[in-house]
Design a protein around this nucleic acid. Structure first.
Length: 875
RNA sequence: GGGCGGUUAGCUCAGUUGGUUCAGAGCACUUGGUUUACACCCAAGGGGUCGGGGGUUCGACUCCCUCACCGCCCA
């Protein structure tokens, strides 16, 4: 069999992904094994694969692949979400570029375009995930607007309405004047900005006197319906019961008193615009103020403003200043830093606006969801996110679920001519309800008008863990009963409220159970300079290019190497390079093994037998650590452990020990032993690097059609003998010692040496002598009864090792080395003795700790003795 | 303004219930190396008063207080 000297990831990865698909290994059906389920955080249909997806899906794939190898029935459900605002914006823009105005289209016509767009672009990201190696059950792919998911959303709306949890209300909402829709609090991003604070004076009605207010938004003056001061403010007592005139429009409004006003801020006097500021709105409610909505939906000034009608709000701000100045109302302008809310989707400034919207009452629903996380029934990794969650859930506000858009699930509310309405899952049912409600059997569909608005996208994705198994429509079906609750959710902390919290809420409301057992929060992918990766900055590499360049395995490793759990990760292409280098390392180890000629006629050398025995235990020890890392969701630590195991323990130690001499064959027993070891190592590696592990595993031994490492078993932890491991560590130190002696004396590896060992007080274990002999290229190992004079030396524990070099040894140099060791050991012993002579330590510390200190004392004393003898010998 | 998290080697981070001279890993760096798998490599090595101060303790990177700085969330 020809094994290429260079590993070619592109070819190999395509080949095996195709093979896995052909064999249908990703697909899951309920059976009598334990399920292991992950639902993908659905990427939205406007998206293309970015580094965040790479990280997120790499982690999911690792978890799923390992679970599969642990014998679980693993099911990873993929899908996408429809992203109401983002998609609608894209479609509107696309139409615009074709000269079509959305306003000229009917709802149905627009939706046709939107579906076309979705069909064309919606699946791109899932196709890209395949390049990464994602082992999703593609047969189960879902979309938040496909038939079953849509039905679920509508059904839930009706149900929540009937439970009295959904209500319609006129509230202050976050209005996006570009998308012309309300958005939720979570979709508003506050940015600090340099702006101006304008001081404007209002004339007191019937007097020549003025009162001065400060505002950052002078254009809203036109909607003012009061001026407010703090009732405790001495300065303004004379204003009580008076009225002032709003500048320019000369409207007479009352002066009111409210504790809300901060006496220290500005002039201590506040203008009140209930229609355009959330706080003003609340004050307005308390004082029964009139509300004057001076803005149109697109952010221009409305007729009600009287002035500047049709002018955009920012332009209006510019224009109103000279107007105020001219009218003698402008007092001064100061620079001011404040926070301004921007729409997450369109990046325009959010306008607080009164509007009629649908809300979901959250308080009652949130309770079980909060408790679930408090009690770790749903466990967050890392734990610190519990605090954040508690804080949000404890102060949860009602959720504005309506959006003034077309793309999405149209709200199943049907209005009658008199403004009353019915809520039903379909138009037919609505009609029946309406007939019943009105007692008028002659009502027809034409008498009903469905609400124009759609539901917030999160109102469909919060059902995701249930709806992908159709558990809303058909709560007793086999899939939902088998796969729910799912096991792990992997997502970004930025959507902890948008999505995670709401899924937990929906889980308890509709399944009386959590949606998942663990939530693993990944970091945010940033560049080396800690900037968030974004298209506009152009600082994000194209993941598919990276895969082409370094291989999917290399990229997966690169992602993980920089992703400590829960911290942001600073992505650097150099890490991907490290990942690729690692694939080369593994490939070369494999080539070495496969390149050996195997002989049945030679005996297994002692050193090979010992090394294989040691490695088996070493691997078990490492595997225990890896399993533990997995249990704690320390995925990058798990990777680092297998990384060093392969590079150091397997390649640098095991292979170097068993490696036959040049052009010599290897004995059959050792060869098979090495293949077994590599087989195990590959299986542990597989979740991290699925492709190269499969390629090598397939070449390692003859495999039948239908065999694959991805459906093989995760290795069992075998017995570990601490003495063997400690013994081998001593061997490694001894070999390092020999290498040092060679290096310091310019002795080539080819020259074989004689090693003499003086066991010292604690004795010497010769179990691994054969290994030392091979690795050190020694002609003999001899135990001696006393120190060897004039030889190069080093110590491992309390034994001394000597290599006689004739006259070559530099006594001064050797003495210096020994003195240093002596000094260190004395210092060490000192610190131990200090503790042991402290009565309070001996009395208070646990016995085990004291015993340990005593053992340290004995070891140090033995070593000191050896060192002193040796120094005496040299002198 | 309120809350949360962080500060450990040049960089990114571990450090599990206080207990080995315990200060660690990876990368980067330095030195040496054409040993017949691999320079996408091997071997060896340097580097940190664990943010400052105080306290508890026989013993503190670890617990408490305080200050400084950074980040995030909410208002």
């Amino acid at each position: 069999m020809e094994i290429p000297s260079k590993y070619n990831p592109v070819e190999v990865e395509d080949k095996w992904y195709k093979y896995w698909l052909e064999k249908n290994y990703f697909h899951s059906e309920p059976d009598d094994r334990d399920p292991y389920t992950i639902v993908i955080p659905p990427p939205n249909v406007t998206g293309v694969l970015h580094m965040g997806h790479m990280l997120n899906n790499t982690i999911q794939d690792i978890l799923v692949r390992r679970a599969r190898m642990l014998g679980k029935n693993a099911c990873w459900v993929p899908g996408t979400d429809h992203a109401s605002i983002a998609t609608e914006a894209k479609v509107v823009n696309k139409l615009k570029s074709e000269g079509i105005d959305k306003n000229d289209l009917s709802r149905d016509e627009f939706l046709k375009h939107a579906w076309e767009w979705t069909d064309k672009h919606g699946g791109i990201i899932l196709e890209q995930l395949k390049k990464l190696g994602a082992s999703c059950d593609w047969e189960r792919t879902c979309f938040t607007m496909d038939e079953k998911r849509s039905e679920s959303v509508i059904k839930v709306f009706v149900d929540l309405y009937e439970k009295g949890l959904i209500y319609r209300g006129v509230r202050m909402v976050n209005w996006d004047p570009q998308a012309k829709t309300a958005v939720s609090d979570e979709e508003v991003i506050h940015k600090e900005e340099q702006s101006k604070l304008y001081y404007v004076r209002y004339q007191i009605e019937g007097e020549e006197d003025y009162v001065t207010i400060a505002t950052t938004r002078p254009e809203t003056i036109l909607g003012d319906t009061a001026v407010c001061v703090n009732p405790n403010d001495e300065r303004f007592q004379h204003l009580k019961g008076k009225r002032v005139l709003v500048p320019l429009v000369k409207r007479s409004v009352p002066v009111i008193m409210d504790d809300y006003v901060d006496m220290e801020f500005g002039t201590g006097c506040l203008k009140i615009t209930p229609a355009h500021d959330i706080n003003d709105y609340e004050i307005g409610m308390r004082h029964n103020l009139e509300t004057i909505d001076t803005f149109n939906d697109d952010g221009t000034l409305s007729e009600k403003a009287q002035l500047l009608v049709g002018v955009d709000r920012f332009e209006a701000r510019k224009q109103i200043i000279p107007m105020l100045d001219e009218a003698g109302n402008l007092v001064k302008v100061e620079n001011y830093t404040n926070k301004v809310g921007y729409s997450e989707r369109t990046d325009v400034v959010i306008e607080p606006k009164l509007s009629a919207q649908w809300f979901l009452a959250m308080e009652k629903l949130a309770k079980p969801a909060l408790e679930a996380v408090e009690s770790d029934d749903v466990e967050f990794h890392p734990k610190k996110f519990k605090n954040l969650y508690r804080h949000w859930m404890g102060n949860v506000k009602d959720w504005c679920i309506s959006r003034q858009l077309w793309w999405g699930h149209q709200i199943p509310v049907y209005y009658l001519a008199d403004g009353s309405f019915v809520v039903a899952e379909s138009a037919d049912k609505a009609l029946a309800k309406a007939q019943e409600k009105t007692g008028n059997q002659n009502l027809t569909m034409a008498d009903l008008t469905q609400d124009e608005d759609v539901l917030d996208t999160w109102a469909s994705s919060w059902l995701w863990p249930i709806s992908v198994f159709d558990g809303i429509n058909d709560p007793e079906n086999e899939d939902i009963k088998y796969y729910y609750p799912t096991d792990d959710l992997v997502t970004a902390p930025e959507i902890i409220f948008f999505w995670v919290a709401r899924m937990i809420i929906a889980g308890y409301e509709y399944r009386q159970d959590k949606p998942f057992k663990n939530v693993y929060f990944t970091g945010i992918v940033r560049d080396k300079l800690r900037r968030k990766m974004s298209k506009s900055l152009g600082n994000s590499p194209d993941p598919l290019d990276l895969i082409k360049q370094y291989g999917a395995d290399g990229v997966r490793v690169g992602m993980l190497l920089c992703s400590p759990a829960g911290n942001d990760l600073l992505f650097d292409e150099a890490l991907t390079e490290q990942g690729r280098n690692f694939t080369a390392k593994i490939w070369n180890s494999f080539r070495l093994v496969k390149g050996w000629e195997v002989s049945d006629s030679i005996e297994q050398p002692e050193h090979s037998k010992l090394a294989l025995e040691w490695f088996e235990q070493k691997l078990s020890e490492q595997l225990t650590m890896i399993n533990d890392h997995f249990d704690k969701f320390r995925i990058s630590d798990a990777l680092m452990t297998i990384y060093t195991t392969i590079r150091d323990e397997f390649s640098s130690w095991l292979l170097e020990v068993v490696k036959p001499a040049y052009q010599q064959p290897i004995d059959r027993t050792t060869y098979e032993g090495v293949l077994d070891a590599l087989d195990k190592v590959l299986r542990v590696l597989h979740p991290f690097m699925p492709f190269i592990s499969e390629e090598i595993w397939q070449l390692l031994r003859e495999r039948k059609d239908g065999e694959s490492i991805m459906i093989s078993q995760w290795p069992e932890v075998g017995e570990v003998n601490a003495e063997t491991l400690a013994g081998f560590e001593a061997v490694q130190e001894a070999i390092a010692g020999i290498r040092n002696v060679r290096k310091n004396n310019n002795l080539a590896m080819k020259e074989s040496l004689e090693l003499k060992i003086y066991p010292g007080d604690k004795g010497y274990n010769k179990q691994f002598d054969a290994v030392i002999k091979k690795m050190g290229n020694l002609s003999a190992i001899e135990l001696v009864a006393e120190e060897v004079k004039g030889a190069a030396s080093f110590r491992v524990f309390s034994s001394s090792f000597f290599i006689d070099l004739g006259e070559l040894i530099d006594v001064e140099e050797e003495l210096k080395k020994l003195e240093e060791e002596l000094k260190y050991t004395e210092g060490f012993l000192n610190s131990v003795m200090k503790k042991l002579s402290n009565e309070r330590f001996v009395n208070n510390a646990p016995d085990a700790v004291v015993a340990k200190e005593k053992a340290k004392q004995a070891d140090a004393e033995a070593k000191l003795k050896v060192l002193k003898e040796q120094i005496a010998n040299l002198k």
